[in-house]
Amino acid sequence: MSRESDVEAQQSHGSSACSQPHGSVTQSQGSSSQSQGISSSSTSTMPNSSQSSHSSSGTLSSLETVSTQELYSIPEDQEPEDQEPEEPTPAPWARLWALQDGFANLECVNDNYWFGRDKSCEYCFDEPLLKRTDKYRTYSKKHFRIFREVGPKNSYIAYIEDHSGNGTFVNTELVGKGKRRPLNNNSEIALSLSRNKVFVFFDLTVDDQSVYPKALRDEYIMSKTLGSGACGEVKLAFERKTCKKVAIKIISKRKFAIGSAREADPALNVETEIEILKKLNHPCIIKIKNFFDAEDYYIVLELMEGGELFDKVVGNKRLKEATCKLYFYQMLLAVQYLHENGIIHRDLKPENVLLSSQEEDCLIKITDFGHSKILGETSLMRTLCGTPTYLAPEVLVSVGTAGYNRAVDCWSLGVILFICLSGYPPFSEHRTQVSLKDQITSGKYNFIPEVWAEVSEKALDLVKKLLVVDPKARFTTEEALRHPWLQDEDMKRKFQDLLSEENESTALPQVL
């Protein structure tokens, strides 16, 4: 008996699950189920560990084997000379395990699969056993689809999209007709009724959600790893209520002995410091949205989908001078704002400069500016000194954290500008005749005249004003913003236009 009217009423009120309206889709043409990776026989039982391990490696599972009696060998002398080797079968990115008779397991190899009674669906509900069930008529011709799209860092995100009359449910929550939600590992998919569980979705590319604290899981769906560094790992996640993407940084307390840091400095109150950081608001710094204190720290951040500045300059790639100017102007505005709010970044580098898009002209935002507030000064500097390429001379020669101030950030900005303009770092371990530390503390950077011949004198002058060993003589952010190279009204107008595109209400910060 159909429950279409009941569920449609529920759909009209929406769902609290991570779902959002989605535009129309072009329906895929039908194809045989076997060619799409559906096993030839149905099963109602969950797999054992041996079955799972075989399939996850990209080899055929026991459900897909063919009797050897149906095959015969071709003698080598009868092999056609022009026969080309077969292409290897792509490894599946996800697996659906059937929970009921009449449904088959599915190895997801393609990027898009339609499910329903219509014969054009890649996964067609046409098993005779299924057709005899009382629920068969409640399934729509095109009930739902599972697909994946390219996300940040060229990774993939799996989604389920509801197109049914009676509802598609993920972990008992209604997706909603015309809406989608991301699928995470071990999600249970039910059709027409929330208790009519048909599939379990296994994402073969992500970790299980159960490793994360419950308070975090209640608000966010964790997904793929976006990156990792000395101070922690960053994962893509989704807000459950809105389906908006965020980035979540995970900082290990054990790695940084944060408990010991608190004992050594009783004034170090991470929760208080995070609340201060959350109040920071500038178009060129990453917004801190939320914070969870569990076995590790979880910092929920605004997501930038254009990648890191590092990706644009790695491998001796240089940027156009006009692009360097647009990016560097924004970096200076961001660091100036942090300094005005009493925050020294201490870890400025291309990896911590994020881009809003893949376009050459785009907004940038500074991230990882609050680590000293979370990890403690000593722990952070011990970590950073392991990779000193961007560290100021006074940091390398000081004991502990004494003896330096916000000028350290201006040195790091000078190193970043040098790399963007030239395509190579000013200080490098590859210069074996002088140690990296000695290069930095003496201010002897690697200047290649033929490379810098293409760079304007004004740009080079600003680099020199920032890479000054004496912090008292080094340019401040205010002085850098007043430098002739940055007195470019076309560049500032472009920045204002980019801000307006992102948010019509965002105004250009005042600069002296």
Rank of each mutant, 00 (worst) to 15 (best):
A17Y: 08
T45K: 07
P213N: 06
Y123S: 14
K214V: 02
R195K: 07
Q29C: 11
N185H: 14
C108V: 04
Q29T: 07
D203N: 08
S32T: 11
D207S: 05
S187V: 05
L216K: 00
K244F: 06
A247D: 03
E122H: 12
E263L: 14
G165N: 15
E263R: 06
W93E: 04
M46I: 05
T45W: 09
F103Y: 06
S260E: 05
T172G: 03
V234W: 01
S31L: 08
S164Q: 06
L226K: 14
R254F: 04
K224S: 02
T89W: 13
K224C: 00
E161Q: 14
E188S: 07
K241S: 07
N185G: 09
K142T: 15
S40N: 11
F144D: 02
K245M: 07
S55P: 07
E79D: 15
V211D: 08
S33P: 06
V234I: 06
Q10P: 11
L106R: 15
P88G: 04
G14C: 10
V109T: 15
L226E: 14
T242S: 04
Q34V: 11
T45D: 08
K253L: 05
S40C: 11
E233F: 05
E87V: 06
N154T: 02
Y123G: 14
T172Q: 15
Q83V: 05
Q20I: 04
S140V: 05
V66Y: 13
F115I: 13
S52H: 10
R240Q: 04
I221W: 07
S39H: 06
R181S: 07
G23L: 07
Q29D: 10
V246S: 06
T65E: 11
A9Y: 08
S49V: 11
A261Y: 15
K255G: 02
R262D: 14
S252E: 01
G37M: 09
Q78L: 06
I146M: 10
V234F: 02
R262G: 04
E161W: 07
F169E: 02
T172A: 04
Q27K: 11
H13Y: 12
E188N: 08
S252T: 12
S40L: 06
K197R: 02
V170Q: 08
A91D: 06
L226V: 02
L174I: 08
V270A: 07
P92G: 15
E173P: 01
K119A: 05
E239S: 04
S228E: 00
A158R: 00
H163R: 07
E271Q: 07
E107T: 13
G259E: 14
T242Y: 01
Q209G: 03
Y113M: 09
E84N: 13
H22V: 06
C231R: 03
L130I: 04
D118S: 14
K241Q: 06
I250H: 04
E86H: 05
E8N: 13
